[in-house]
Amino acid sequence: MPEVTMLEAIREALFEEFNRDPAVVTLGEDIGVFGGAFKATEGLLAKFGPERVIDTPISETGIVGAACGMSYLGLRPVVEMQFIDFIACCFNQVTNFVAKSHYRWGAPVPMVIRGPSGGGVHGGPFHSANPEMYFVHTPGLKVVYPSTAYDAKGLLKSAIRDNNPVLFFEHKFLYRRVKEQLPDSEYTIPIGKAAVRREGRDLTIVSYAAAAHTSLEAAKLLANDGIDAEVIDLRTLLPLDREAIVSSVKKTSKLLIVHEDTRTGGIAGEIAAIVCEDAFGHLDGPIARVTALDTPVPYSPPLEEYFLPSVEKVAAAARELAQY
């Protein structure tokens, strides 16, 4: 079996779900004939036809609204945001219509909104954002943010089969950079379960998406210094796997949270609160965090590099924490 990229894994998940269930349809800008800005949907139209692969106008509110309506009749629409930054255009539709539907009047919305997110590719302020926390703060949604090809495929399949609206963030820096062999047989990964990427005794690094790779690389550096870091990849941000975080902190007694999202209101604050609620007595040091700056994502490479968390920043924060 050849290795596949994360992008190819996502495409495989779509093809398999389209084959499995004719209720699965997809809507988005340039996703049909063109196959999507990143080619995630390439080949879908030719195989499954224009009734299931719908090229839409530039109309995020229209797309998400229509997908919601389709889901009310039992379809399972997958919406592509050309860049996840544009989800801001349909914020109301997502947070007020879709997210509250089941709570308000018992109408489930089995839809997925997926799209490329994240920085590191010099996309500038409107093509690099990590807007996940707007939606983690919205009850009724599920928020998934994988970091590997294997997870992306398994989680996307779970997202499509879920009876709730799932926001599926695809880190575009990882699209073609992470590769691995995928199993021949079908598999899914449950939403809401974190993964331990590296076991360790001295401190816990909690992270997700591209920052999970940054954290793993930092853990390798730390190992040279004799610091044995455990790295947890959240994979799902809502619902958050409290259990995985708390049990790791109980083991290592130290917690560093790393994310590419901006600092204020990032998920690090929420995780710190959870650990204080559930494992305060086990902590041997302050909860530390390495995040992006509280600024828009800058365009110029040196600016963006300075903005993003890096292996060095993570390693430095971990070394400091290890001294407690």
Partner: peptide, 19 residues
């Protein structure tokens, strides 16, 4: 929020046509 029903009901109609 006014107007949001219009794309939703467009989707209802589209799904009905699909089915």
């Amino acid at each position: 929020m006014l107007g949001d029903l219009i794309p939703v009901m467009a989707g209802v109609g589209m799904a009905g046509r699909y089915l």
